[in-house]
Computed example of a mutant assay.
Amino acid sequence: MPVAVPRFPGHLTDVAGLRVGHHTLAGHHTGCSVVLCPPGGAVAGADVRGAAPGTRETDLLHADHLVDRVHALLLSGGSAFGLDAAGGVMRWLEAQGQGLAVGPARVPIVPAAVLFDLWLARGPRPDAAAGWAACEAAASDPEAEGNVGAGTGATVGKLFGLPRAMKGGIGSASLRAHGVTVAAMLAVNAIGDVIDPATGLPLAGARTEDGLRLQHSARSIVQGLPVVVPATGSATTLGVVATDAVLTKPQANRLATVAQDGLARSINPVHTMSDGDTLFALATGGAGHTPPMTVLGTLAAEVVARAVLNAVRAATGLPGLPAAVDLPPG
């Protein structure tokens, strides 16, 4: 019987001005999620850490490149097919008059990243219509978690074969400290296990052969047990960490880099050859000041780890693919 599990408080929309919309392809185990920035955009950066990424418009976020603001971010299922959804987000923003002024035109800047959910999603993939629908659904209310949007077909714990994996999902968390808000939203679709940093025990991941307990993948690898490494590009955890602090583009990139520490605390193994782990950072500047980057980085890593745990706690199991609420931890 599923058991009640606690969640860390907060959502990405706790950063004032951000709106989140999910579009779920009902019955097809895939979807996409959009983060809409305030009018005029937000300063952004990115850190691509996995070895098999699927991304769009991440090069322009490099600290030495021209454009420093984005108008939306897209996280999508469907592997590389899901990048099509960014076109729908661009068209929706253009219809709202949002975008970078380039001569007579406005060009919305929409970086995107995709995860591999084709183990489950074997029908339609997120396309431009899905991206548009996610924008239409966007709101400043607390965003939904679990089997929605980009987390619909997410799975975790695949190092001992897909029959022993578990359900991943999408989750959020936020913190308010030092006069700023720092929040994160993660679509958790990892090769490795999701680990509770407080106990060192897995919450969701590879299961034992009988399917009733958690295997603890990293510990099993150290013990020399054989693994079944899925094909390259078969997973990926995606996320957005956002703050209302005032940041420059180099600082936003640094925030995305340090926020990856939150993945290292809560997923093991992480950043593998089969993952395309990517984090975006957004800074709206609404707080009007900039705490020390060491402070912001500490908050970002913590909130990312919390959002990862919330993602698997909110997930709902499917036939043959249980969720964290269906198994005891450890």
Results as ranks from 00 to 15, higher is better:
Pro319Ile: 13
Val156Leu: 11
Ala187Thr: 04
Arg176Gln: 10
Asn189Trp: 02
Val5Ser: 05
Ala26Pro: 11
Gly169Pro: 02
Thr24Lys: 04
Pro53Cys: 15
Gly41Arg: 08
Pro108Tyr: 05
Pro111Tyr: 07
Thr24Ile: 07
Val304Thr: 12
Ala256Cys: 09
Arg219Ser: 14
Ala139Asp: 10
Ala323Tyr: 13
Thr199Ile: 03
Thr155Tyr: 00
Arg219Ala: 15
Asn189Gln: 05
Arg69Gly: 09
Asp244Trp: 10
His289Ala: 14
Leu118Ala: 00
Val67Glu: 11
Leu25Ile: 15
Val3Arg: 15
Gly211Thr: 07
Pro269Glu: 00
Gly168Tyr: 12
Pro111Glu: 09
Gly211Met: 15
Phe160Asn: 14
Pro163His: 11
Val20Arg: 05
Ala139Leu: 11
Pro2Lys: 13
Cys135Ser: 09
Arg265Trp: 05
Gly131Thr: 00
Ser79Glu: 01
Ser33Ile: 12
Ala287Asp: 04
Arg56Val: 03
Val67Ile: 15
Ala44Lys: 13
Asp193Val: 06
Ala256Asn: 04
Ile109Thr: 04
Gly54Gln: 10
Ala46Asn: 08
Ala63Tyr: 10
Leu255Val: 06
Asp277Trp: 03
Val194His: 02
Ala52Leu: 10
His65Tyr: 09
Gly262Asn: 00
Gly171Arg: 05
His289Thr: 02
Leu25Gly: 11
Leu238Gln: 14
Ala245Thr: 08
Pro319Val: 03
Leu159Thr: 09
Gly320Ile: 03
Leu299Val: 15
Thr58Gly: 07
Val229Phe: 05
Ala184Asn: 10
Arg125Ser: 00
Leu321Thr: 14
Ala183His: 04
Ala283Gln: 02
Thr24Glu: 02
Ile267Arg: 06
Pro104Cys: 03
Asp64Trp: 08
Thr24Gly: 01
Arg306Ile: 01
Val5Asp: 07
His22Trp: 03
Ala134Ile: 01
Gly200Gln: 12
Asp210Ile: 05
Pro53Tyr: 08
Leu115Met: 07
Gly276Leu: 01
Leu120Tyr: 04
Ala177Ile: 11
Gln223Ile: 07
Phe280His: 01
Thr284Glu: 09
Ala4Trp: 06
Gly146Glu: 01
Ala256Gly: 09
Ala252Glu: 09
Ala283Lys: 04
Asn268Pro: 00
Leu159Ile: 08
Pro163Cys: 10
Ala105Lys: 14
Val229His: 08
Gly151His: 00
Arg125Thr: 09
Ala139Ser: 15
Met1Phe: 08
Met273Arg: 04
Arg265Met: 14
Gly10Cys: 05
Val194Gly: 03
Gly10Ser: 06
Pro163Met: 13
Asp326Thr: 15
Pro2Cys: 08
Arg306Cys: 05
Leu238Asp: 12
Pro197Arg: 01
Phe81Gln: 08
Leu60Glu: 12
Asp275Asn: 10
Val67Pro: 02
Gly224Met: 13
Gln98Met: 10
Gly146Asp: 00
Ala46Leu: 13
Pro322Tyr: 07
